[in-house]
Design a protein around this nucleic acid. Structure first.
Length: 303
DNA sequence: AGTTGTGTTGAAGA
DNA sequence: ATCTTCAACACAAC
């Protein structure tokens, strides 16, 4: 589940590996992933463009492209959202056609890229240095959009995003203002991309455990001390998770196909029945909407 | 072999 | 405004 730390890890990897490369071609076998332009038109529109900048906004990967020598004008933007099980890999693959619309994609490189989770490749961008960017996505929920920089940047999915939790300018006062404006449960508020961008099920559980706040507590009922603890926990947990290269309890891997090590540092998420790291009480799991909240009923009981 | 859990986003209905 | 449910899709674990 790529959330802020996982997406940041991918973006950092891509910046190291593929900046300055020109895209020479595209292959895909699931046209539905490509939302803009029409899947059949993607290759024609992206071929020859050069990768000049790679950024993250919320859980979105933003790959800035240019067809110019001067990389300041005439920019294009490739937006990739990995959703539940998508992750970008940098490698080399061989495509074999099995039947009219079925393909066998296999890694030409030995090692992590051969792992099962990295072998649901449905989209490949070919680069002029011989490397390829592959999108592995078991459940095929990921989405890819290409357009002019202006066009993509003005899409509601970027426009409506809340502030970046790790932004230096995102002060406690701003945080307090937007959180206390909500009366929903705090876990749901933290996961709302239009309130704050980048936090999902994993890190909302982790942040609330660290801040000792019950996931069901109404956001507008939080005390100033709780808000301070929450703000601090949000920053600390997300920074730590970026440093540890994300969580791989499920499909997420970095661009080399390797696991993130926040998995072992987890405080609450998917630790049901395991002892709380503060008080040894078994971690509980309860449903909130359609998803699970993991928490310590002793440390996080103020509701 | 059928059911449940997994989670992001968007849409629909209450 | 806020909520609940569902749908996109596929697999592992029970």
């Amino acid at each position: 589940m790529p959330e802020l730390p996982e997406v940041q890890t991918i973006v950092d990897d891509l910046n190291k590996k593929i900046l300055g490369q020109r895209i020479t071609g595209v292959w895909f076998d699931v046209p539905n992933l490509i939302k803009k332009p029409k899947a059949q038109a993607l290759e024609k529109q992206i071929k020859g463009l050069k990768i000049i900048e790679i950024k993250r906004r919320g859980k979105n990967i933003l790959i800035y492209l240019t067809n110019n020598q001067q990389p300041t004008t005439n920019n294009y933007l490739l937006l990739i959202h990995q959703k539940l099980t998508g992750h970008l890999l940098v490698g080399k693959w061989k495509i074999e056609k099995i039947s009219s619309s079925r393909y066998q994609v296999s890694s030409l490189l030995k090692g992590f890229l051969e792992d099962k989770v990295n072998n649901y490749i449905h989209l490949i961008f070919y680069l002029d240095n011989g490397w390829q960017i592959g999108l592995s996505d078991l459940r095929k929920f990921a989405k890819v959009l290409l357009g002019s920089r202006k066009e993509i940047e003005s899409l509601p999915e970027l426009k409506k995003l809340g502030p970046e939790p790790l932004d230096k300018n995102f002060s406690f006062e701003k945080f307090k203002k937007i959180i206390t404006a909500e009366k929903r449960k705090i876990k749901q508020v933290l996961m709302d991309q239009e309130v704050i961008a980048g936090i999902g099920n994993i890190y909302s559980d982790e942040i609330l455990w660290q801040a000792k706040i019950h996931p069901f507590k109404s956001a507008n009922k939080l005390t100033t001390n709780e808000l301070k603890a929450l703000y601090k926990a949000m920053r600390e947990i997300l920074k730590k998770a970026v440093k540890l290269r994300g969580t791989s309890t499920s499909d997420y891997r970095d661009t080399a196909g390797q696991l993130g090590s926040y998995t072992e540092a987890r405080l609450a998420y998917q630790r049901e029945g395991e002892p709380c790291r503060r008080c040894k009480t078994p971690i509980k799991r309860i449903k909130i909407g359609e998803r699970s909240a993991h928490f310590c009923s002793k440390c996080q009981k103020n509701i």
